[in-house]
Design a protein around this nucleic acid. Structure first.
Length: 114
DNA sequence: CCTGTGACATAAG
DNA sequence: CCTTATGCCACAG
């Protein structure tokens, strides 16, 4: 089995794990970092298996608007929000406040040179 | 190879 | 604000 095959999912997990405490990022940002900017949905799908699996903090991954679109995949109704608030992030009605301050762009922070 | 799917993103009504 | 529709892409069966 070739590592290239799992590359995408693997990278998704890797990046998600790299998200610093109290920071969030978007599916699109991760996808872009992976070199597949238009596969944001794949990122979400990957998270589908990551939630509760791996050590992936899926709750730190939100959509571009800072909306907790994936909260439905968590256990409770507001578990995702609780986790984020636990990290010092203000969340109101599934919407991250001051997203600008909490946003963590992998491509930017990691500044990798492909 | 073809079909279905998915936690997005964007556009249109 | 809402719902639909489309694109887009990688993976599973």
């Amino acid at each position: 089995m070739k590592p290239e095959n799992q590359n995408f999912f693997h990278k998704v997990y890797e990046v998600a794990k790299l998200i610093p405490f109290g920071r969030v990022t978007s599916y699109g940002a991760i996808a872009k970092y992976l070199g597949a900017a238009r596969s944001a949905r794949m990122v979400g799908w990957a998270m589908n298996g990551a939630g509760g699996m791996e050590d992936v903090p899926a709750h730190r991954v939100v959509n571009k608007a800072g909306l907790l679109t994936g909260k439905h995949h968590f256990d409770g109704t507001n578990l995702m929000q609780q986790l984020l608030e636990n990290e010092g992030i203000v969340v109101i009605d599934n919407q991250i406040q001051n997203l600008d301050k909490h946003f963590w762009d992998p491509g930017k922070e990691l500044a990798e040179d492909f």
